[in-house]
Each structure stands twice: as C-alpha cells, then as structure tokens.
Amino acid sequence: MADISFSNERYTYIHDIHKGSIQAIDNHHIVVRKSNARGFLLHICILTFLAIACYLFLLKEKSSIIYLSSILLGLTLVRLLHWKSVVKESVVIMPAFGVQLETHYGSGRVVRRFVPMGNILRPVLNECVTPVTCYWSLALIVRGEAELMLVFKELRPPVKMLVPIWKALCAAIDIKESTDEVAKDDH
C-alpha cells in the first residue's frame, strides 16, 4: 500500500494504492483540514443559543415553549452545519472496471457515484469562472451526457492536487483501451 500525501492550508491530498488480486485499486482522497476558525464559530453559535435559552428560562414570565423552541433551533442549526459540512472527497479508480466518486459528510453520510470505465471519454482539467472568482476543476466527459461530470462536487482543491488525479484517470482510460484491443485480437 503506497501512500503519498501533501497539504496546503485548506486541504490534504492522500494517494494510496490497494494491491488487489488482479490490478491495483487507486485511491485519491482530498481531505478538508480542520479549520480553527470554523470550530471557533461553531462553538460561539452553540454558546450563544445556550445563553439565550438560559436567559429565557430565568425570565419567569416567558413560557417554557419559547425556551424549548430556542434550544431546538440551536440544535437544528448546529446539526445542519455538521450535516452539510464535507469532510473529504475521494476518487477510487478501479482499472478496467470504473471510477467511483465519493463525498464524505461530517455526519458520516457518504454519497457515491459510479462511472463505468467504458463511459468515460476523457478526464479534463477545467478553468471555472464565477462572477467573483476563477478556480480549477477536474471533470469527466461522459458518453451520452450533455454536461461534464464534476469529480469534486463540493470541494475546490488546488491544481497541484488535481493534476496527479487527472494523470491517474488518463492512465486508467489508456489501460482500458489497450485491454479492449487485446480482447479484439484474442477473438
């Protein structure tokens, strides 16, 4: 199991290869580094809501319904923040089989998308432009799809992290093409 890793302020790139019986499964992970500012903000939110709840509880003339609803609102907001936050996104390349794209959330929920190798026409490094910024993204040109499929739906890793994944995807597609040719020759 080979392991390559490097980081910047926001993300950590981890590349590990699982040696299987036939071909190695290539894993590329982009892990979100824990932000002190984000954690601090989350704790401030929790404390603020608790303070409001306690204040309402101490004011005897206010009903307990308001007190309970404020606690519930606080918990819901914290839960939402935690639920929506992305912990990591992964690209699992299974040569001659397909590519699995995974999004791991803070809640433990994992969203997986699988693209068969035969459907991938080409991986592309794209420059995305929004009204306020430009950034690099990695996408797949998928057969039969009108739009590009983004490899990282939630995160915006730097291009130096995208390049090795792009190269690995290119290599995997080349392997697929060569195995197809071998199969044709055998027949």
Binding site: T130, P131, V132, T133, C134
Partner: peptide, 8 residues
C-alpha cells in the same frame, strides 16, 4: 462588483 474577479 468586478474587483474580486479582476484581481483573480
């Protein structure tokens, strides 16, 4: 409005 994108 165009300052962030232009700077980038």
């Amino acid at each position: 409005g165009t300052l962030p994108i232009l700077r980038t």
